[in-house]
Amino acid sequence: MSTRDIVLIALFTALTAVLGAFPPLMIPALGVPVTAQSLGPMLAGGILGAKRGALSMLLFNVLIAVGLPILAGGRGGLAVYAGPSAGFILGWIAAAGVTGLIVERLWSGLNFVTAFIASVIGGIVVLYGIGVPWITAVTGTPLGKTFAGSAVFIPGDLAKAGVAAAAIVLIKRAYPMIRHAHSRS
């Protein structure tokens, strides 16, 4: 891992923190706030690739744990991990890793559709696959009920996967980051 890799990891950690400060969008029909912050794992994985993307989300979790209020709404600290929805924050590590893995595999022919699929699988399927069973495990609430409660956030997350996919494709064209790392492995 070069100094440049460490700098890139830290930059995407900080970017994710700043995305949390974007004013949240309200979806009136659902009444749930949609923050830009969960773009972070999709962007980190899709732009830096699996390894650096996952490490930047791990670093994001470390910064929360040591007491920085960097989650949307100024939340942070160890209390985040004591709450029932901690799996959705820790799950960002795997979400970035899987998004990155798929983008690396499809790198040479990457377009909006494949980048969108990568973002949806990493940032929604994998993330909910960790976050939902986590709630069930720590609270004993049946899986079906936890999923139904979490599903209201999926439309917002689909919109974010669209934004992430567009960004991933545009940035690949302007400043590709993955090719070198991938050809080496």
Binding site: I9, T13, A14, A17, V18, L55
Partner: peptide, 16 residues
């Protein structure tokens, strides 16, 4: 490297 990453990220947040 981990220490460096932590201190860089903390400094990057206000800059970004």
């Amino acid at each position: 490297g981990i220490s460096l990453a932590i201190s860089l990220a903390i400094r990057f947040i206000p800059a970004i």
